[in-house]
Amino acid sequence: MVTTRKERVDALARMSTDDREGEAGVSLAVSAWRRLRRNPVFLVGAAIIGTFVVVALLSPWLAPHDPSEWMLADQVSKARNEIPPPQPGHPLGGDQVGRDLLSRLLVGSQQTLMVGVFATVIGLGGGLVLGTLAGAIGGWVDSAVMRLVDVMLSIPSLLAAVSIGALFARPSQFTVILAVAIVQIPIFARLLRGSMLAQRNSDHVLAARALGVRPRAIVFRHMLPNSLGPVIVQATLVLAVAIIDAAALSFLGLGNPDDSVPEWGQMLGNAQTVIDSHPNLAFWPAGCIIAVALGFTLVGESLRDALDPKNRR
């Protein structure tokens, strides 16, 4: 039998590869998802977030009453410190001016989630730009960006958000989003820059450079996608922080002054005047904020574990 050298090499190669896993194209994301699905921490977190998202989307139909209508106003008495108690048709009672508390909670989830998501997305976008600049170009650009980041990080995040929020003459939901987002930018920038720098010295980037790949392709195809893992994880964790920060701004009166659109932080802020006699008014929005923040934190933590390449099987 005549066999060429190539055939022999081929045969050897086939032998060494026959028992490889058969599915084509399992990317990092897919295999991370497979691990996530079995993680109870992720499932609990995802269930919490999922519930709140569904509620937020369906709240116009779920809410039993108009959240801005003073329908129980006749049961409110400032002088005698009376607030509508839970009653048929109003399972959680009313707030200080007689609006249905349950409806306000349900509709309030919209604002809270929206603020959290937009603030995180804007913060992430800004952080991506700054971090990519610093990590990809290096040199004085890196130094300049990082000093800026240091300055921003030297101010406690809530204080910074409050200061930025206070800069705006007319506070609105948008100024809250902006204030919270700006505070998150340096965290993302520093994180991305760090992982970009690690990528810059990695073997596969050297190998790509040895093939003459252009710098732009090196940055956007070889460095950036490999640096995103920790940033994505941070984003889910930041969502929790953003929601809490936004609630804090509203609580401090830097949020939307129009309280016909309910928002949990603002509800909490309004509840503080009557917290001694009617703690339930503070309890419900606070509980919701905690639950959503917990949900995002759980998902973020499990995502971090799942995306850690060391965990790959």
């Binding site: 990317s27 990092l28 990695s202 073997d203 596969h204 050297l206 190998a207 790509a208 450079r209 040895a210 093939l211 003459g212 790949v213 252009r214 195809r221 070889h222 996608p225 490999n226 390449p309």
Partner: peptide, 23 residues
Amino acid sequence: RDRRGRDLGMVFQDPLSSLNPVV
């Protein structure tokens, strides 16, 4: 840059870390 990959090729030591894991 134009020469690398076209005139000069290079193969490195560690085949796993020399490939981009996400592409």
